[in-house]
Amino acid sequence: MSETPADLKYTKSHEWVRDAGDGTVTMGITDHAQAALGDLVFVEVPEVGRKLAVGDACAVVESVKAASDVYCPVSGEVVEANEGLADAPEKVNDAPYGDGWLVKIRLDDDAGMDALLDPAAYAAILDE
């Protein structure tokens, strides 16, 4: 069974969002997503300062077999990207909600946070 922490928000495309409460969020891919992709061998993160809209391809995660886009769950500006993944992409597999985070984003005024799924709604999608 994949893990779905209660303090996060989610998307249908299997990204998670953690609200820091100071106008910024951290995002990554869910435990379900990392398990489905398998061993990751390369992660491409966006540059700091890049403006992102909801649904933009903001990162690429590559498993041994294939490359997959990660979609931005909110709109805002990249304030930090997890550069450590360049040398250790397996962190996304080992700790998708921890060291395997992808991007920190400063939210726009209307960032789309309300459209995100709560843990129960996301878990329901996984059960389908």
């Binding site: 398998g38 061993d39 061998v41 498993s63 041994v64 077999k65």
Partner: peptide, 8 residues
């Protein structure tokens, strides 16, 4: 089977 847990 594509893998049994870890392809690597």
């Amino acid at each position: 089977p594509v893998h049994y847990g870890s392809q690597i």
